[in-house]
Design a protein around this nucleic acid. Structure first.
Lengths: 193, 193
DNA sequence: CGCGAATCAGACAGACCTGTCTAGTATGGA
DNA sequence: TCCATACTAGACAGGTCTGTCTGATTCGCG
């Protein structure tokens, strides 16, 4: 092996892990650089050499979250065959995430809420958001619904709302509630032809 | 008149107005005390005499928001007669709020996202949230639905999700989308007896 | 061995934060 | 006229923040 990565974890990886824990639990504004490097056991210079700035670290943290969320959802989708089951499966994946005792809401929504209008952080959050929307749109199109975009928008409302409720009410069953509502919307939506 | 309030606006009112603009647009963590008092044209001592701390000011700002949101919703409800129309009317009131060019998401959600777990700010946000949920529950009960609590939870998901979408996608039509989804849920939900 | 890259430890600058305190000013009512 | 109340202006303390910089140390690799 080239650089014994199995034994010694790189500063980059330790920083990302610490950022994930601290930023997600306590918020990207509340947590300072010093807390992150202390938790990671890494020198401050390493952080600035690797990520350039705090904003760079926050974006890397969000991108890592995005990759994980995406692979979790895609993995769930493979368990179902029909697009209708797959749409509802997205809410199952959400429910899985909610059962994590450390669940603290959608990382992208929260980071965006803490950040100014035109930042790179906002753009990263929007990237995730449009991915979910397009996923719903594709699945709804495959189902043969007459207005897949509008249906996808409705499903996204449930998706967002479930994350909100799970956090603010500390109630993981919000995913089940959202799943039930989604099923009702799918039943009610007009099919093409 | 006792203290000529018509001519000179009190420090308290000016502070609340400045807090509303700055905290809502830019976030309660981002905006510092100095910016608030400068924008209000008020001495720092007046802030601490009136509200005790920054947290006190933030809570007062949120309570003012709560009162305004509540009266806006109640005003909208009086325009409709049946409880079903009133449920959908809540989403009309939401749409009104979204058309404000300064709309920047649900103030309670955002303040909560920026704040630690056990703060008075969180409690104020939860207060608002439970009010909305109870309103939906009462209206759903009056409609005669078999499971008004579950239906109210579903409607709250749409309510939350609409605020989220309106902010992140800068799309006021999220209220219309949510209204349409709510109508579908009302049509699909079982009636008692 | 010796080089170079990665990393560590921590001082430092400069800005901003909340909250306290002193001192001065305006004004309405007794 | 005098006093209480409400307010203004701003210095100050003590802390935290981001980001830079210096110098030492580790370690894989030729």
């Amino acid at each position: 092996m080239a650089t014994r990565t199995a034994i010694k974890v790189s500063a980059r990886e330790r920083l990302l892990e610490a950022a994930d824990e601290l930023f997600y639990q306590q918020g990207v504004q509340t947590v300072g650089i010093d807390r992150v490097i202390e938790h990671a056991g890494v020198a401050k210079a390493s952080l600035y050499n690797t990520f350039g700035s705090k904003e760079g670290l926050v974006c890397a943290y969000l991108e890592q979250r995005f990759e994980r969320a995406r692979s979790r959802i895609i993995r769930t989708l493979t368990r179902f065959r029909t697009p209708r089951e797959q749409i509802l499966g997205v809410f199952d994946a959400l429910g899985e995430a909610f059962t994590d005792p450390g669940y603290n809401g959608c990382a992208f929504v929260r980071a965006s809420a803490e950040t100014a209008e035109d930042s790179a952080i906002r753009r990263t959050a929007e990237h995730y958001r449009s991915w979910v929307r397009e996923l719903f749109t594709e699945l709804a199109t495959t189902c043969g619904y007459a207005e897949p975009e509008e249906l996808a928008r409705q499903l996204l409302l449930l998706y967002d709302g479930a994350g909100q409720a799970a956090r603010m009410d500390r109630d993981p069953s919000a995913a089940t509630t959202a799943r039930g509502a989604a099923a009702a919307l799918l039943d009610a939506a007009p099919i093409v032809g």
